[in-house]
Nucleic acid binder design. Structure first.
Length: 225
DNA sequence: TTAGGGATTCCCT
DNA sequence: GGGAATCCCTAAA
């Protein structure tokens, strides 16, 4: 679980300094651990989404929090790779990103879903409403909840204790991709098919089209497992 | 200072 | 399948 597919000995942080869109499929199967006071929970990532920063003028990303430049909230995304960007949304949920790209750029991978591979009892305790193991981290806010992450963790280094990230020994088999979830406007179209998931994995989140507040989801745009 | 809306989830119908 | 819950961030006045 520690070998680096980009070459033996190359530091993980350098690996993460690459293009988020290329990193996304390689991060599938990686295990993120958070060792808190209550205990450790580890999640094997099964679904991620790439978000880019404003520095690439050829490919602006209107779906990204950094589209309009740096703000206090999104500051970690401009920092070094391997750090966490955690944000609060809908008045009640937290979502977790791993920052990618060289320092100064603002790309990241949103962790959309995963499989709990360690600390399942603690994860279940945190996720009071979820019944089946597959649902514990099925969805970005669920994943953040299972790992016990909040905005207090935003900007912290995911590669150092109490966190840890281990790449899979080899890239996972079949990977699917499609438009990002919940992103309204152009950033949610198939021009930005930057959502990647392990094909057929039962922990991949349910697809829901971005809701323009009052519109119906389009069945034609279904991109599930 | 305020209004608008959100990288969602859960419960109810 | 639809709607509520609920608060923070951002932009605009």
């Amino acid at each position: 679980m520690n070998r680096n597919p980009m070459g033996a000995g190359q530091p993980l942080r350098e690996f993460l300094s690459g293009d988020a869109r290329q990193l996304a499929p390689l991060l599938l199967g990686a295990v993120l651990t958070h060792d808190s006071r209550d205990g450790a929970v580890s999640v094997r990532l099964t679904e991620v989404e790439a978000y880019l920063g404003p520095e690439d003028s050829l490919h602006p990303d209107p779906g990204s929090h950094t589209y309009r430049g740096p703000t206090p909230r999104n500051a970690p995304m401009f920092g070094p790779a391997g750090h966490l960007y955690v944000y609060f949304t809908y008045g009640m949920h937290h979502c977790t990103n791993i920052v990618c790209g060289p320092e100064g750029t603002a790309s990241a991978l949103l962790l959309r879903a995963g499989e709990i591979v360690d600390g399942i009892e603690l994860a279940r305790h945190r996720r009071t409403t979820s019944k089946s193991p597959a649902d514990l981290a099925r969805g970005p806010a669920r994943l953040a909840k299972a790992l016990g992450l909040t905005t207090a963790d935003s900007g912290r280094d995911a590669l150092a204790p109490p966190f840890g990230l281990a790449l899979p020994p080899r890239p996972v088999g079949q990977v699917s991709s499609g438009p990002r979830v919940g992103v309204s406007g152009a950033g949610g179209t198939d021009q930005y098919s930057w959502r990647f998931w392990i094909t057929g994995d039962p922990t991949v989140s349910q697809y829901k089209a971005a809701k323009p507040r009052g519109a119906k989801p389009d069945p034609a745009t279904f991109h599930g497992r």
